[in-house]
Amino acid sequence: MTDKEVDPSRAEWRTSSFSGANGQCVQVAFLGGGHVAVRDSKNPDGPVLTFTSGEWNSFIHGAKDGRFD
């Protein structure tokens, strides 16, 4: 895997369709090499969390199962 594959500066960020109009959203981008990046839409130049696809899938399944409620 190269640094370019996990470089979030070239990412195409997506915002959930469930996000409200208040601007408090989490954005996600699918990067090369099976990595997923997450950032705060209010601070697009701020920190970015990067996960492997396995870590991201575990989080998504946990959220759907209500583990974080």
Results as ranks from 00 to 15, higher is better:
M1W: 04
M1L: 04
M1V: 12
T2F: 14
T2S: 13
D3V: 12
D3H: 10
K4D: 14
K4W: 15
E5Y: 13
E5A: 15
V6Q: 15
D7I: 02
D7R: 01
P8A: 04
P8L: 02
P8C: 09
S9G: 08
S9V: 10
S9M: 10
S9I: 04
S9L: 04
R10P: 03
E12P: 14
E12T: 15
E12C: 15
W13E: 00
W13R: 08
W13M: 08
R14Q: 14
R14K: 13
T15G: 13
T15P: 14
S17P: 07
S17E: 06
S17N: 11
S19Y: 10
G20C: 08
G20A: 11
A21N: 09
A21R: 15
G23V: 09
G23M: 11
Q24G: 14
Q24D: 15
Q24H: 15
Q24P: 15
Q24T: 14
C25I: 02
C25A: 05
C25G: 09
C25R: 06
C25Y: 01
V26R: 02
V26Y: 07
Q27M: 09
Q27N: 03
Q27S: 03
V28F: 01
V28L: 07
V28W: 00
V28P: 00
V28S: 01
A29F: 06
F30L: 11
F30Y: 12
L31M: 03
L31D: 05
G32P: 13
G33D: 07
H35I: 07
H35N: 10
V36S: 00
A37T: 03
A37M: 10
V38F: 05
V38A: 02
R39C: 00
D40A: 01
D40N: 00
D40C: 03
S41W: 01
S41L: 08
S41T: 07
K42I: 05
N43H: 11
N43K: 09
P44N: 05
P44S: 07
G46T: 08
G46A: 04
P47V: 13
P47W: 10
V48W: 06
V48S: 00
L49Q: 02
L49W: 04
L49M: 03
L49R: 02
F51G: 00
F51A: 00
F51I: 03
T52S: 01
T52Q: 08
T52H: 00
T52F: 00
S53A: 02
S53Q: 10
G54F: 01
G54K: 03
E55M: 11
W56D: 03
N57M: 14
N57G: 12
N57V: 10
S58V: 12
S58L: 10
S58W: 12
S58P: 08
F59R: 03
F59E: 07
F59K: 05
G62Q: 09
G62K: 08
G62V: 07
K64H: 11
K64V: 05
D65H: 11
G66D: 04
G66Y: 00
R67D: 10
F68G: 01
F68K: 01
F68Y: 03
D69M: 11
